[in-house]
Simulated scan of single mutants.
Amino acid sequence: MSRPERIESKSTGVLSALGSKYSAEILCAAGTPKSAQALSEDIEIPIATCYRRIEELVDAGLLTCEGRQLSEEGRRTNIYRRTVDELEVDFSDERPQFSQKRRTEAKNRLQDQLED
């Protein structure tokens, strides 16, 4: 099992991203690679809101663009997956401190195989 990694410098961005409505739902749904359209449909939120939350989560380092694939309509679309499985916030110091359990490539590959 991997050790949690400390996040020191991104505390404001992480808290801001997590504080936005639907962000936690997007992270939960993005355990496997999904397009913004698929995330929007899964969570039942407007696509414009989904794109805004995705941008915030990517900027905070909690979500990553894994590449592009063709949509059902034949358009190239970005595919996103969360970068963490667990995030802990410690408020006992002057500033919030974060510990995170990052997703490994091995876990991503295994989960991708299970989904096929």
Rank of each mutant, 00 (worst) to 15 (best):
M1N: 09
M1R: 11
S2N: 08
E8V: 11
E8I: 09
S9V: 07
K10N: 05
K10H: 06
K10I: 02
K10T: 03
K10R: 08
S11L: 05
S11G: 07
T12W: 06
G13C: 03
V14I: 15
V14W: 10
V14K: 02
L15H: 10
A17Y: 00
G19R: 07
G19K: 02
S20E: 13
K21A: 08
K21F: 05
A24C: 04
L27I: 04
C28F: 06
T32C: 12
T32R: 10
P33K: 06
K34W: 02
K34P: 02
K34H: 11
S35T: 15
S35D: 01
S35C: 03
Q37C: 04
A38G: 05
A38Y: 01
E41S: 10
E41M: 06
I43F: 02
E44R: 15
E44G: 09
I47Y: 13
I47T: 07
A48E: 15
A48K: 14
T49I: 15
R52L: 13
R53W: 00
E55R: 12
E55N: 10
E56W: 01
D59I: 06
L63D: 01
T64E: 12
R68H: 10
R68Q: 14
S71G: 13
E72L: 09
E73D: 10
G74H: 04
R75I: 01
T77V: 15
T77K: 09
N78D: 10
N78F: 10
I79P: 02
I79K: 09
I79E: 08
R81Q: 13
T83A: 05
V84D: 11
D85C: 03
D85L: 06
E86V: 10
L87P: 09
E88S: 14
E88G: 12
F91K: 01
S92C: 05
D93Q: 14
D93I: 00
E94P: 03
R95Y: 13
P96L: 02
P96N: 04
F98C: 13
F98D: 08
K101F: 07
R102N: 06
R102S: 13
R103P: 05
T104D: 05
T104H: 11
T104L: 13
E105I: 15
E105M: 09
E105K: 11
E105W: 09
A106Y: 12
A106H: 11
K107S: 11
K107H: 11
R109Y: 13
Q111N: 07
Q113M: 14
L114G: 10
D116K: 14
D116Q: 15
